[in-house]
Computed example of a mutant assay.
Amino acid sequence: MNKSLKMLMAAAFLSLPIVANAQTENPRGIYKMTTLTGKMGEVKAPFEQYKICTDSVTLMVSERAAFFSISNNDHRVLNYTGEQPTSEADKSPLIYDSNDKQFKLKWWSTYTHHIHFPNNDWCIEKYESGKYTEKSKPFFDALTGASDVDASNPLTGTWRFIGYVDELRDVKRELLKLHEQYDKSKYFNSFFVFAPKYLTMLIQNGGVVDKIYYNGKKSYKCGNMTRQVKWLSKDRIAVEEHIDYRTDWMILERVTDGTPPLSHIASQFVSKTR
């Protein structure tokens, strides 16, 4: 388990269990589905899917091109159960062969016409840690706060997106409103993570990864769009955005509390289940 993930667990009060047997641990960490056993037997995972397993919530991440969706698909914490159900009537999901490197999820499928999932039979998904696609690695680095730091460019790092202002001349007055409304706004827990090669936008339900090109500290380019950056202070910037033939400014504030974005996002899923 890498250092950043350990920091994530600590920050979110997600302590790791004491282990007695390497194959009967509760899975904790980030895992990628590598095989699926179902209607067509055991096959290589037919889609890119990850599980983020913690003591408080299990989040599923699905990868589609450069977009990644986050969901509480399992609605439960994944803990070791053993391979066999308690009775023939018990169709509860099972977790086994599990430790910090891998686990198997066995679940009862009632899909009638799915190409891979059987109907009224068990389906087995195997997950392994440390497995990422080239596109997903920057996303998880941003999510867990493990993105590289480029000291020569002050834009690098994690920034909280708190909202828009129309005019920078009114920014001081508008900032007070943004802070008052932030917790209840649609921008709550939205982050921009600038890394030397990638820009990742993270929101509670997912994010996108784009290649980024810096022009010093005054602008950056994603795709064909160049965005101007105005520095309001050392840890606060305004980023130009053109919307419907007008110019607005996104206000970003640097996250300096050392807490990875995943901790903030996961806490929202936890709070919704209570």
Rank of each mutant, 00 (worst) to 15 (best):
L16R: 04
G41W: 00
A89Y: 14
V270S: 01
L175V: 02
S152F: 14
M7W: 02
T112W: 12
N99G: 14
M201R: 03
A11K: 01
E167M: 14
N99I: 11
N215E: 11
L143A: 06
T37V: 03
C53L: 04
N2E: 13
A146L: 12
L143G: 05
Y50F: 14
M1I: 09
Y80T: 10
T256Y: 00
D55R: 05
H179K: 08
K131V: 14
K211V: 09
I115V: 07
Q49H: 06
F191L: 02
I243L: 13
L5Y: 07
G82L: 05
P85Q: 03
Y245N: 15
I162A: 05
L78N: 10
T273A: 06
T273M: 06
T81L: 09
N21T: 14
K217N: 11
T86N: 13
P138A: 13
K272L: 02
L8I: 00
D257G: 01
F117S: 10
T226M: 03
M9R: 02
A10T: 04
P260F: 03
C123G: 04
V255F: 00
V61Q: 06
L14P: 06
K234D: 14
N189Q: 12
V19F: 03
E88I: 15
S62D: 12
M33P: 01
D150E: 11
V57M: 06
R160A: 08
Q84Y: 12
F103N: 02
S136Q: 04
T35K: 02
F192V: 04
R173A: 13
T133R: 07
T156K: 03
V19I: 12
S219W: 00
Y182M: 06
N224A: 10
F68S: 02
F161H: 12
Y132N: 01
T144F: 07
P85F: 10
D244T: 00
V61P: 02
V239C: 06
Q49R: 00
T273W: 09
A142I: 11
S87W: 13
E240R: 12
A142Y: 10
I203D: 09
A20R: 10
D90E: 11
K44R: 15
G206F: 06
Y220K: 01
Q181A: 12
R169D: 04
E180S: 08
D100G: 13
D166N: 14
L175M: 12
G207A: 05
W108C: 13
G206V: 03
D210K: 03
E63Y: 04
I30Q: 01
S92V: 15
I18P: 00
E240M: 14
Q268C: 01
K184C: 02
Q84R: 06
L168V: 08
R173I: 01
L252P: 03
K230A: 10
G130Y: 11
K234R: 08
